[in-house]
Design a protein around this nucleic acid. Structure first.
Lengths: 127, 127
DNA sequence: CAGCATCCGACGGGATACTG
DNA sequence: CAGTATCCCGTCGGATGCTG
């Protein structure tokens, strides 16, 4: 496995792990992708409701990045009031199994944490 | 899927995707994990040789985080000159299939990029 | 050999206010 | 409704130098 330098929209990556991380690494991207996968078509405001903690600015930014990376399709309707719908592209959908496997490992990992190998005697508290 | 707030070593996460991203998200972590998976036992200097671009500081930092997150085991031999060996823990090994699926998607995604949906007419160049 | 300490720049991401 | 435009700050990660 040689890891030569390539780049994606100005961001560098040395191997395919990193390429994938570049694309899904934004703070809100996995959640956005997951909601789009579950509900197929969502408007901007609908996404906001489903992810209440995100600010408009960040939601816009992350969606634009997902769009320019080709994972999300943005359909603009020329009406008043404005209407914009977001959907996954085919390559975006192919990412879902990866997210699923990450989720599964996360579940397992959390159990591991509570079983105490790491947190043994460190005063960790669950909120 | 409700996403309530929890935290891992002070870092917050709302769902299992994010938990996994917290743990593997460091710039050099996937590569470190992958080399440890392939070669089972590696000393600090051996890791450096395999990842020439990383600085000592960053390699140390990422290894310490992986260790405190329970993915990597650090074995210190009290000899002169110092000798430290790194290995994957069981939960660390269980992460490998996830990294593999990320790598596979990355390969597919790169093909998609070169087929031009995203880069069509944007002057993208392969180095 | 395997590190830690310090300094520093870049940028990811938050808060707030404004608009076609 | 679906965004921009500013401002700002914390952190990630690089460079360099020192040590048990």
């Amino acid at each position: 496995m040689t890891c030569s330098m390539k780049d994606l929209n100005g961001k560098e990556y040395k191997c395919f792990f990193e390429l994938t991380l570049l694309v899904i690494g934004g703070k809100w991207k996995p959640i956005i992708l997951y909601f789009l996968f579950r509900e197929k078509v969502l408007r901007f405001g609908e996404l906001r409701k489903r992810i209440p903690e995100v600010t408009e600015r960040m939601l816009t930014k992350q969606l634009r990045e997902l769009e320019s990376d080709g994972l999300v399709h943005r359909e603009v309707y020329k009406v008043v009031p404005p209407k914009v719908e977001y959907t996954l592209t085919p390559i975006g959908e192919r990412l879902i199994p990866v997210l699923e496997s990450m989720r599964e490992w996360g579940v397992e990992y959390e159990e591991f944490l509570y079983d105490g190998e790491v947190l043994k005697g460190e005063g960790y508290e669950k909120k």
